[in-house]
C-alpha cells in the first residue's frame, strides 16, 4: 500500500511545495514535469524520506524504495559489478540476477571496469541496475535519461517498462523531457512554479496497446499529448 496524501514543505519559512496530492498510484508510472527549479527533486526527496516534511503524509507500507538520482553516483573505488551490488549489500539481500541484468543492459564484459573507465551512458545504466536489483516496488527516478544517447535511452526505457510490468511496481519519474513523459507514463503531473503545486494531471492512454517508446512516438495521439502538455508549460513558448 502506497499512500501519498496532501503534503507541503517549508524551507527556511518559505513555502516551497504546497498541497501535493497524489492518489491511486499503485502499479502506475507517474511523471512530474515542470519548470526548472520548481522543486521536482524535493518532492522525490520527501517521498523517499531523505527530507522530512512536517506537513507530509507519506506512508509507504512495506514497500522497498529504489531511488535513482540525477548523477549516477557510482563509487569510484568499486568496479561496475561491485557498484551494482551496493544496495544488495546494505539491504543484506541476495539477488542472483546480477549477471542477467548486466547482460540485458548490455554491460557484459565491463564487470571489472572502474567508473572512470566507463562512458556516461554505461554509468547511468549501471546506476539503474543498482536501483532495480533489490527489487523495489516504488521506484523514484530523477532525470535518469538525461545523459543518454537516443538508442540507449530507448533500450533502458524498455527495460524499465518490463520491470514495472513484471513487478507491478510504482514508478515516480521526474523529467523535463515531454516526449519521455508521454511514452512512459500513465499519468503526467504538471507542476507550477514555486511554490510548487499541481497545475494539471493528464492521464495518458494510448488505447490498450502495450507501452512502446518507439511506436507511441509515431502515433497521432502522441502529437495531441505533446501539444496539450507544452501548452500547459507556458515557459516553452
Amino acid at each position: 500500500m502506497i499512500d501519498i496524501k496532501n503534503f507541503s514543505y517549508n524551507s527556511s519559512n518559505n513555502l516551497v511545495i504546497s498541497n501535493i496530492l497524489i492518489e491511486n498510484i499503485e502499479d502506475k508510472i507517474i511523471t512530474f514535469i515542470g519548470p526548472s527549479g520548481c522543486g521536482k527533486t524535493t518532492i522525490l526527496n520527501i517521498i523517499s524520506g531523505l527530507i522530512t516534511s512536517n506537513e507530509s503524509s507519506v506512508s509507504l507500507g512495506h514497500n522497498n524504495i529504489g531511488y535513482m538520482f540525477q548523477e549516477d553516483l557510482l563509487l569510484p573505488w568499486r568496479t561496475l559489478k561491485e557498484n551494482v551490488k551496493l544496495g544488495l549489500e546494505i539491504l543484506k539481500n541476495d539477488n542472483d540476477k546480477i549477471g542477467e541484468y548486466i547482460s540485458s543492459f548490455e554491460l557484459s564484459g565491463f564487470e571489472n571496469y572502474y567508473p572512470e573507465e566507463l562512458s556516461g551512458g554505461m554509468k547511468q545504466r549501471a546506476a539503474l541496475i543498482r536501483t532495480l536489483l533489490p527489487s523495489p516496488n516504488l521506484i523514484l527516478l530523477d532525470e535518469p535519461f538525461s545523459n543518454l544517447d537516443f538508442d540507449i535511452k530507448i533500450r533502458i526505457q524498455k527495460e524499465l517498462l518490463k520491470y514495472q510490468k513484471d513487478k507491478k511496481a510504482t514508478v515516480l519519474l521526474v523529467t523535463h523531457d515531454i516526449e519521455d513523459a508521454i511514452v512512459l507514463s500513465d499519468e503526467v503531473i504538471i507542476l507550477s512554479d514555486k511554490p510548487t503545486s499541481i497545475k494539471k494531471t493528464i492521464p495518458i492512454n494510448f488505447g490498450g496497446v502495450e507501452k512502446n517508446p518507439i511506436e507511441y512516438r509515431k502515433s497521432y495521439k502522441f502529437i495531441d499529448y505533446f501539444t496539450e502538455i507544452s501548452k500547459e508549460l507556458k515557459y516553452l513558448n
Binding site: 523517499s48 524520506g49 531523505l50 524504495i65 529504489g66 531511488y67 538520482f69 548523477e71 553516483l73 563509487l75 551496493l86 544496495g87 546494505i90 539491504l91 533489490p134
Partner: peptide, 12 residues
C-alpha cells in the same frame, strides 16, 4: 555527501 544520501535511500 551525495554518496551518503544514496546509502540513506537504502535506510543504511
Amino acid at each position: 555527501p551525495d554518496y551518503i544520501k544514496l546509502l540513506k535511500t537504502y535506510k543504511a
